[in-house]
Simulated assay, not measured.
Amino acid sequence: MMRKLFVLLWALLTVTVAYAGAQQGVSPGDINAAAELRMLSQRLAKSYVQLGLDVVPAAALEQLRDSTLRFERNLERMEILASALPSVAPAIKRLRGDWAALNTVVAEPADKTRALLASQRSLDVLDGAERLVDALEVASDNGGARRINQAGKLRMLSQRVVKAYMLYSWGADTAASRHEMESAADEFGCGLTTLAALPENTADVRAELSEIALQWEWLRTALLVEGAGSYRLVVAEAADSILAATDRLVRLYQNSESR
């Protein structure tokens, strides 16, 4: 009897320790990797639309392939993490299915109809990745995870707003594309303001935020030019610059939490 009681108590202790370990096991790098899935979903769709529009197609194809490889790598990391944190396993399983559906669309040559479908599928992936990031942020129980999450959202929005712009300039469901573009732009502006107001920002973070703000104003001006197909290249290049800057910002926040 005592032996059975000992075994039961040992099992309960093991579960408790495993749960605590899982809670502590969500690192800043895990939050960043999950948040990057959001960005990659929109970068992939944006690159696919660029291919259809023949806007720097070689670069767009390279970005599409790179986004696919990085998404797979990060998703595999999440699947490994799920073994220690079972609560996120359903979200990861759903994300895997939505990702497969998006990949099926972009495997075919891009036209206006397929570009719209790719955008819709990318939003399904984005929604699943968003849920995953939020779940990991809660599991991490770390205030720094929120900053990584917020900065990572800017990284995603830099791609989403340009994806919607490309669709709008192509005449693909113009009302919905314009709404998505304007909503993403507004969200980017609000997110940038929120991060800039954080009192714990270091000098390096403040400098990066100032650079992003300058680049964003320039891109926002280009987005407002009505019906200018010639601006597609300008907007695409601006998106790449802002993506690089927001990625640096995420890593500054990540490094500050990893020390």
Rank of each mutant, 00 (worst) to 15 (best):
D111F: 12
G144Q: 08
R121M: 13
D173R: 15
A84E: 00
A129F: 10
P86K: 13
R121S: 08
D127C: 09
R131Y: 12
L81V: 09
Q159H: 10
S119G: 05
R155S: 02
L126Y: 12
C190F: 10
L81Y: 01
L154S: 04
M181C: 06
A145C: 09
Q159G: 09
D186A: 12
A84V: 10
E137D: 04
T113A: 14
P86S: 07
A145D: 00
A100S: 13
S87H: 09
G128P: 05
K93C: 08
R146Q: 11
R94T: 15
E130K: 13
G144W: 06
L102W: 06
N103S: 14
S169N: 10
S119T: 05
G143C: 04
A172G: 03
N142H: 13
C190N: 09
R147G: 02
K153C: 03
G191P: 03
S87V: 15
A91Y: 05
V133L: 03
R147M: 11
A115E: 01
N142R: 15
S169H: 08
M156N: 03
I148S: 00
I148T: 03
G97F: 15
R96T: 15
I148P: 00
D111M: 09
A164V: 11
L157D: 00
M181G: 01
T113E: 05
K93I: 15
N103H: 15
G144M: 08
E180Y: 03
K93F: 11
D124S: 13
G189S: 13
A91T: 08
S183R: 13
V133I: 11
E130R: 13
R114C: 07
E187Y: 08
